Deep mutational scan, measured.
Amino acid sequence: RELEAFAERFKQRRIKLGVTQADVGAALANLKIPGVGSLSQSTICRFESLTLSHNNMIALKPVLQAWLEEAE
């Protein structure tokens, strides 16, 4: 499924970029996305391991996609 594929791609790109899960969480606050502050390292970890609820995964995907586009 698309969500699982994105989570895997996100993790691979993050590692290639040399960015930690905690760095991603902190950097999200800098994107100034309305309603989104920083996220914890454990939230990023749970996203990558697909252990968040489906609704949370869907909500976080565009936020993490925005970070990925900014980071690349």
Rank of each mutant, 00 (worst) to 15 (best):
T20S: 10
P34K: 03
A29G: 13
T20D: 02
A29H: 11
P62Y: 04
F47C: 00
A7I: 11
K61N: 02
E2M: 03
E69W: 06
N30T: 13
T51P: 00
E70M: 06
F47H: 00
S49Q: 12
L64S: 01
P34H: 09
L31V: 15
F6D: 05
M57H: 01
S40C: 11
A5M: 15
W67N: 03
L39S: 10
R46T: 02
V24E: 00
R13A: 13
V19Q: 08
L3M: 06
I33L: 15
F6A: 03
T20P: 06
G18L: 01
A26K: 14
N30Q: 13
G25P: 05
E48A: 00
E4L: 07
P62D: 04
A29V: 07
E8K: 15
A26Y: 09
E70H: 13
A26L: 12
H54N: 12
A29T: 06
R1W: 08
W67L: 03
I15L: 10
V63R: 08
N56W: 15
A71C: 07
R46E: 14
A27R: 04
L17F: 04
F47G: 00
I58H: 12
E8H: 07
L28S: 02
T51M: 15
G25H: 06
E4G: 07
R9F: 05
N55L: 15
L17M: 10
G25N: 00
K61L: 07
S42L: 12
T51I: 02
L31C: 15
S40Y: 04
L31N: 02
K16P: 00
R1T: 09
V36M: 14
P62N: 04
F47E: 00
A71R: 13
L64E: 01
I58Q: 11
A71V: 11
L68W: 02
E70Y: 06
G25D: 04
S49G: 09
L28G: 01
N30H: 12
V19T: 07
T43G: 02
L60A: 05
S53G: 11
E72P: 03
I15E: 11
L3C: 00
I15F: 05
V24G: 01
K11S: 07
E2L: 04
K61Q: 07
M57P: 00
I15M: 14
I15H: 04
L60S: 12
P62R: 04
L3F: 10
K32Q: 08
E70Q: 11
S49I: 02
A27D: 03
E4C: 08
G37P: 11
T51H: 07
P62Q: 04
T43I: 10
L68Y: 05
A7G: 02
A27C: 06
Q12M: 12
L64K: 02
L50E: 08
F6I: 08
G18K: 05
T20A: 07
A26R: 13
F10N: 01
G35Q: 11
K32P: 08
A22T: 07
A5R: 09
R1A: 05
G18V: 00
Q21E: 15
S49M: 09
A71W: 05
E2D: 15
K32T: 10
S53A: 14
L64C: 01
A22M: 08
G37K: 13
K11I: 09
Q12V: 09
R1K: 07
V24M: 05
S42M: 10
L50W: 01
S40G: 09
K32N: 13
E72T: 07
E72C: 08
V36D: 01
V24L: 09
R46G: 15
N30C: 06
N30M: 06
T51Y: 04
Q65K: 13
C45I: 15
D23K: 09
A27G: 07
L28E: 00
N30I: 04
V19A: 07
R46K: 14
L31H: 01
L68S: 03
S40K: 02
Q21N: 15
L64F: 04
V63H: 14
I33H: 06
A29N: 12
